[in-house]
Design a protein around this nucleic acid. Structure first.
Length: 858
RNA sequence: GGGCGCUUAGCUCAGCGGUAGAGCACUCGCCUUACAAGCGAGGGGUCACUGGUUCGAACCCAGUAGCGCCCA
């Protein structure tokens, strides 16, 4: 047996264990296994990314679930991988090129894509290595990347299928455009924030025929083609059908009546800029108005005139100034707080832009995605969050999937010389002379296939047959509609109505110790790798899991990480104690009748805790799992059982060594999914086994439930705690031995005298024993020779405090028992309980009063 | 503007009809032979507010206030 140091040193253990697990193939799934399947796909991190604390939480949960599933004998798969992150990755490589003074256009498409692949091979997926430090038990043999050949084939297959079903179409629409990334974005890639801008009211036309409109984007007036008012608006009804002059341009534009204009908002009149605003685009469509594009893809004004060539943000004040000079400005509000969309990748202000793009008609797909949750084929956990999901899928806009990028899956559509459009499937050849669409697909299009493309779809692989639908998807509630809804749509569509997961288990965001969001600018970001280095991977994981209640945010701090490290160290030393004291796991557990009450008590508690842990896992209550095991391990096993076991072992009760071994074996296995490294190291030392990973998950042995033993040990704990309190109040040093006489005969505590004396450092009374203090706990009288004067004041204070509490309790219970309504309506067990409390309080009052009056006066 | 959630000890959170809990922080005493990353003892809360239901409310209902998140 190796000597264990007195402190747990995580760094020594972690790398060694992880490598052993991988080389032993413990993480490798076997689709041929007879066990019931348990499968999880890792939400693929961005290939450019590195491990942040949110990943650490997400992964800790998945690792806990899959480690436990393996121990339970299930055929377990946890599949890792990364996504190609179109915009982000292209940006990274473009920045590299910029350092060389090059743009992607200098290289050309083919060379650029080659360069991105090169970057990916050399620098991408750093996070995968970092996951190993956290202990993620993923099946590395099945690692996937969204641009792998197989996954690309899946993309092309589903595109073709959707296209043929008429669910993919190309249309000219207003889309979100990033003038920096030079690509379309989907709605969910736009982040809205309340920003300071301006609201300018502009008078169009002259005299009675004039009308005032307000805008936050004055420069877009150059592209106005109409003014719209509500048809029922008395103020403007007479103007509908007339024309006004658009300032600065001299163009005459019509005033139209449109039901969608809100007469109560602003002046009740809105300018209509169809090429640069989605609502205006709709108005224009209803009134057959033309679209006038006045800005290019970089946000530069292209309208002929003095503003041509100005950036949109330069053009805005210039246009306002010109309007002011022309006497057109009626009102200006500045700053004006309003919602502004930003590119989620580069934070540039998004510009609505009219362009020809590819879309998915989501209506049938989104309905199916909603129905799968409504009818319970997929369960969202916690259920409160299902409403958010429904709100999203039941009102989803068509999804813009084309991106004007080079890095990604190129749209498999080819155009013929006469404008023919052909969608090309995986094994098909485009007709000669046709040219492929230059755009690529949204990254979410391929990550939406993740739960089945990674298992080999569209091929009918053993993996797909065994592991789809996956058991649970673990992710943050923030991407419930981003990504979960997309996987649901595609999974149901591709897999004949089988949803991609049985359960979606949502967790929250990781926050700092004050519940504040972590942000670089605020400086409160925790780097999980830093914690792993300083506190260990287990402590990092345990800190996160201990705060993880379903769907709610997790607050963490340095102190808590230290606390978790301390817990790991506690387990370490407790197991060391067991080892040093001959704990054995080889022998069968003795029958109850050859065990002490302490042995039977801890086995009873183990059964209860094991069952509670299982129940908590079913509800993804990781905080509860962690808390249960923390308190069982520390407060019961370490603080009491180990102390009692010392006495029993010293007295030659060898069965205790078996119980000790049994309890630690089970405890380590229960803890393993949460803290894999320290438990592996200890379990190997304790049992000599190969790996705790392949040890069975402990069953709750309810045959060992023993309420009598629990009551007996509770009485011991009560007595010991009371006497310790007395000792503490009297200023007796913990180590100081005191002679005492205990009246245990005839009580259930009689057999525990040795243990009680040991825990309390009480010596047997000598011939000359002369007690200086006397206290009673329940029915036990303890007389002590404190070898000095008793601190009467301290003792009186103590007793008076207890007496006050007992009197209060007596009064409260008496009030209840004297209440006829209560006696008539409260259930019997509640009444009995109150009676019990009443009796206890009355007895305590008598005892305490007696002790008080026995105190020497003065 | 619409929707959802939260408000319990100094901080972060459990508890969700029958004696207010945990971790950390705090106070006091201890190197007691597994562990000072520790041991023992202790202090600390009109459970946001106002009404209602109930024998009984932190918990259920209604309203108020404050905070947060999502969507528009």
């Amino acid at each position: 047996m190796p000597e264990l140091p007195t402190q747990y040193a995580p760094a020594d253990v972690e790398t060694r264990s992880y490598e052993r697990w991988v080389s032993a193939g413990h993480f490798t799934a076997d689709p041929g296994s007879h066990g019931a399947p348990f499968s999880v796909v890792l939400p693929p991190p961005n290939v450019t990314g590195s491990l942040h604390i949110g990943h650490a939480l997400d992964h800790s949960i998945q690792d806990a679930l899959t480690r436990r599933a393996r121990m339970r004998g299930l055929a377990t798969l946890w599949l890792p991988g990364t996504d190609h992150a179109g915009i982000a990755t292209q940006n990274v490589v473009e920045r590299e090129l910029a350092k060389e003074g090059l743009s992607r256009h200098d290289l050309g498409r083919e060379a650029f894509v080659e360069r991105v692949w090169q970057w990916k091979e050399e620098s991408g997926g750093r996070i995968l290595g970092q996951m190993k430090k956290l202990g993620d038990g993923v099946d590395w043999s099945r690692e996937r990347f969204t641009m792998d050949p197989g996954l690309s084939r899946a993309v092309q297959t589903i595109f073709k299928r959707l296209f043929d079903d008429g669910l993919i179409y190309r249309a000219e629409r207003i889309i979100n455009w990033c003038p920096r990334c030079l690509t379309a974005l989907s709605d969910i890639e736009v982040e809205h924030s309340e920003d300071e801008g301006e609201l300018v009211s502009i008078r169009y036309g002259e005299g009675d025929a004039s009308i005032v409109v307000a805008t936050t984007r004055a420069e877009t007036m150059l592209g106005d083609v109409a003014v719209a008012v509500h048809p029922g608006d008395e103020r403007y009804r007479h103007l509908i059908g007339t024309k006004v002059e658009l300032p600065l341009t001299g163009r005459m534009i019509p005033i139209v009546g449109d039901e969608h204009v809100d007469p109560a908002f602003g002046t009740g009149a809105v300018k209509v800029t169809p090429a640069h605003d989605p609502n205006d685009f709709e108005i224009a469509r209803r009134h057959s108005l033309p679209s006038l594009t006045v800005m290019n893809e970089r946000g530069v004004i292209t309208a002929h005139g003095p503003f041509e060539g100005l950036d949109r943000f330069e053009a805005r004040p210039a246009v306002v100034a010109a309007l002011r000079a022309d006497g057109r400005i009626v009102a200006e509000k500045r700053p004006y707080l309003h919602s502004v969309g930003h590119c989620s990748r580069c934070k540039t202000v998004v510009e609505p832009r009219l362009s020809l793009q590819w879309f998915v008609d989501v209506s049938p797909l989104a309905k199916a995605a909603g129905d799968a949750v409504r009818d319970g084929r997929t369960r969202i956990h916690p259920p409160e969050l299902a409403k958010r999901y429904f709100d999203w899928v039941d009102d989803m806009h068509d999804w813009c999937i084309s991106r004007q990028l080079w890095w990604g899956h190129r749209i498999p559509v080819w155009y013929g010389p006469e404008g023919e459009v052909v969608c090309v499937g995986p094994d098909e050849e485009p007709p000669a002379g046709y040219a492929q669409d230059p755009d690529v697909l949204d990254t979410w299009f391929s990550s939406g296939l993740w739960p089945f493309s990674t298992l080999g779809w569209p091929e009918q692989t053993p993996e797909l047959a065994k592991f789809y639908p996956t058991s649970v998807l673990v992710t943050g509630y923030d991407i419930l509609f981003f990504w979960v809804a997309r996987m649901m749509m595609f999974g149901l569509y591709a897999m004949d109505g089988q949803p991609p997961f049985r359960v979606v288990a949502l967790h929250g965001m990781v926050r700092d110790q004050y519940g504040k969001k972590m942000s670089k600018s605020f400086g409160n970001v925790v780097d999980p790798l830093d914690w792993i280095e300083r506190y260990g991977a287990d402590a990092t994981r345990f800190t996160l899991l201990r705060g993880a209640n379903p769907g709610s945010d997790v607050a963490i701090s340095e102190e808590w990480a230290a606390g978790s490290r301390n817990f790991c160290n506690k387990i370490w030393n407790a197991t060391r104690f067991a080892l040093l004291n001959g704990a054995t796991v080889a022998a069968p557990l003795p029958d109850a009748d050859s065990l002490t009450a302490a042995d039977r008590w801890i086995l009873s508690r183990l059964a209860t805790v094991t069952r509670a842990v299982d129940a908590a896992y079913e509800e993804f209550e990781f905080a509860k799992v962690s808390d249960l095991l923390y308190h069982f391990a520390w407060d019961e096993v370490c603080d009491w059982y180990v102390e009692l076991a010392k006495v029993q072992i010293a007295s030659g009760h060898d069965e205790t060594k078996i119980v000790l071994g049994h309890v630690f074996d089970a405890l380590l296995r229960l803890l393993h999914p949460l803290t894999p490294f320290v438990t592996e190291e200890l379990w190997r030392a304790l049992t000599g086994g190969e790996s705790i990973m392949v040890a069975p998950w402990p069953g709750a042995d309810t045959n060992r439930s023993d309420t009598a033993a629990e009551a007996e040990i509770a009485a011991v704990q009560n007595l010991v705690t009371e006497v310790r309190r007395f000792r503490s109040d009297q200023g007796l040093k913990p180590g100081q031995r005191v002679a005492a006489r205990l009246s245990l005969a005839g009580t259930s505590l009689a057999s525990h005298e040795t243990a009680i004396r040991s825990l309390l450092r009480l010596d047997e009374p000598a011939e000359t024993f002369s007690p200086t203090a006397r206290l009673t706990v329940a029915s036990v009288v303890v007389e002590l020779d404190t070898a000095g004067a008793i601190d009467v004041a301290a003792e009186r204070k103590r007793l008076e405090k207890d007496l006050a509490a007992a009197r209060k309790e007596a009064a409260q219970t008496q009030a209840k028992l004297g209440n006829e309504q209560f006696m008539a309506k409260a259930p019997d067990d509640v009444v009995a309980k109150v009676r019990g409390r009443q009796a206890q309080a009355t007895a305590d009052i008598g005892r305490l009063e007696a002790q008080l009056s026995a105190l020497p006066t003065g």
